[in-house]
């Protein structure tokens, strides 16, 4: 079996300026923290980032710039596609005051399905969410359709160059078991990028996760970083 385990530096060296990155996590819960930290340290710039939110200005244990918030604060991001960015007020500042960051806001359920569609070979998503709202004006909305008398928005599928996945227990094939509420966007994002890099809080041997307990198959995972304890 090909060795998928690489160092965190090797992981971020693969990501060029201008890349589009999906990142799992909900307010940083379930994010690949060590990879994001290394990306911040390296200073990779002009990134387009796709995720639920932009992390938090302050983490649960007082961390400064939790999750992708540090990429925002470092001005490494040029475009955000997310559902909610209010916990990192810097996003609003760079968008509305500095005008250096563009933001596309998408309803959470629509974003999840658009990424799922991107990873599942579907041409789009028809959802009733957003009908009659400003989501209709989003560049990701391709119009409205009526099916059996009900209106739906046609939303584009999303795909990325890289996906950064956070997993609590990952074996050396890349099979993932998630803890608590960390599944969130990790599940769909692992299917929707050219290169998928998963960070393990606990890197284990193949066989240590029972096949019944594998949530994301290692077949989706290109590289594994041993992140160590959070």
């Amino acid at each position: 079996m090909r060795n998928k385990v690489i160092s965190v530096e090797e992981a971020v060296n693969m990501i060029p300026d201008g890349a589009t990155i999906m990142y799992g996590g909900f307010l940083g819960c379930g994010s690949a923290h060590h990879i994001i930290e290394a990306l911040a340290k390296k200073g990779t710039k002009d990134l387009t980032i796709i995720g639920n939110d932009c992390g938090m200005a302050t983490g649960p244990n007082g961390e400064e710039f939790y999750g992708v918030a540090k990429l925002i604060h470092n001005h490494q991001v040029k475009h955000v596609i997310a559902t909610h960015v209010g916990m990192t007020p810097e996003v609003g500042t760079q968008n509305m005051v500095d005008k250096t960051l563009t933001v596309d806001l998408i309803p959470q359920g629509s974003l999840a399905e658009m990424i799922r569609a991107g990873g599942a070979g579907l041409g789009g998503v028809l959802t009733p969410t957003g009908v009659g709202t400003i989501v209709e004006d989003s560049p990701f909305c391709l119009g409205k359709q009526t099916i059996d008398g009900k209106e739906y928005l046609l939303m584009k599928p999303l795909h990325a160059d890289f996906a950064l996945i956070g997993g609590h227990m990952i074996d050396k094939f890349g099979n993932i078991w998630y803890k608590g509420t960390t599944r969130n966007f990790n599940i769909v994002m692992a299917t929707a990028a050219d290169v998928v890099i998963a960070e393990a809080d606990n890197l284990v041997e193949v066989g240590d996760i029972e096949p019944e307990n594998v949530v994301t198959s290692g077949a989706f995972i290109n590289y594994i970083v041993d992140g160590g304890k959070l």
Partner: peptide, 17 residues
């Protein structure tokens, strides 16, 4: 509009569903 940039999060889906 113009005040803060929050985001709809899951609210639009919840209202519809």
């Amino acid at each position: 509009p113009g005040k803060k940039m929050p985001g709809m999060g899951g609210a639009m889906d919840l209202l519809v569903g």
